[in-house]
Design a protein around this nucleic acid. Sequence first.
RNA 1: UUGUACUUGA
Length: 280
Amino acid sequence: HISYGATITACAYAGNLDTALQLLARMRAAGITPDLVCYNACMLACDKAGKMDTAYELLKKMPEDNVEPDLYTYCSLIAACQAPDDFDRAKQLMADLKALGLRPNEVIYNAMMDVCAKCGKADEARSYLSEMRADGVQPSLVTYNTCISAFSRIGDSNTCMELLQEVRHDNLKPDKISYNGCINAFGNTGNWPAALTLFRGMMTAGVEPDVISYTSCICALEQSNEWQKALELLADMRARGLRPGEIALRVCTRMCAKNDKWMEVQVILNEMDSEGFLPP
RNA sequence: UUGUACUUGA
């Protein structure tokens, strides 16, 4: 029944793996053989819950129901590789799916590049970008954003900016995520002036900054102890109708405290309390 | 849009 698939998917996004698996069991009890979509939805639930082992167990059980894994299945398996040393495992999954005769599509490459990003393997992410082009698979904005994220995490802002150019060269328009990634790259190297310049640049380009854009700039300012600029951004963000999140408020509190600005600390702490955020 | 996958902040 189709509603099982939809329900299991809902469980996946709610982070409720146990219920997802119970639904699979209930299907069998009702004499219904789980189909590929139900398995994939459970795989997704494993991914969201960070249960790699359960995902592999499901993969092993699929043949019992005469279900063949597809690209959705492998996407969730690859995406479940979240630990810093899961890169080799993801690479193996990539080999496995090819051995089954499946051809990686854009989403698979994106997922693989995201593993690279999370494992600190930025150069490998770039290689996958080349590989997908060579395979005739068109990179999308998600692809570039993932690659930017990979270089942002290792603090390679030059490559991030190059990738931003490649986005345009590919006739795509950088979005908030693209810019935010580059802003973080500058922040990660302590280059707050460049972060703020790009922040202004995104507005000039007609891309609206969001809470993450502001928060990334505020984080960039923390290393250099630029508390006044951080508070300006906080005010700016409110003027734009954006509500500072827990991260921005915590970072600002830290900075103000470090500089003995106790009145400012008090004001922010009160706001955090009324928002239901924990004090830093 | 017709049950399933990928990207940004302490």
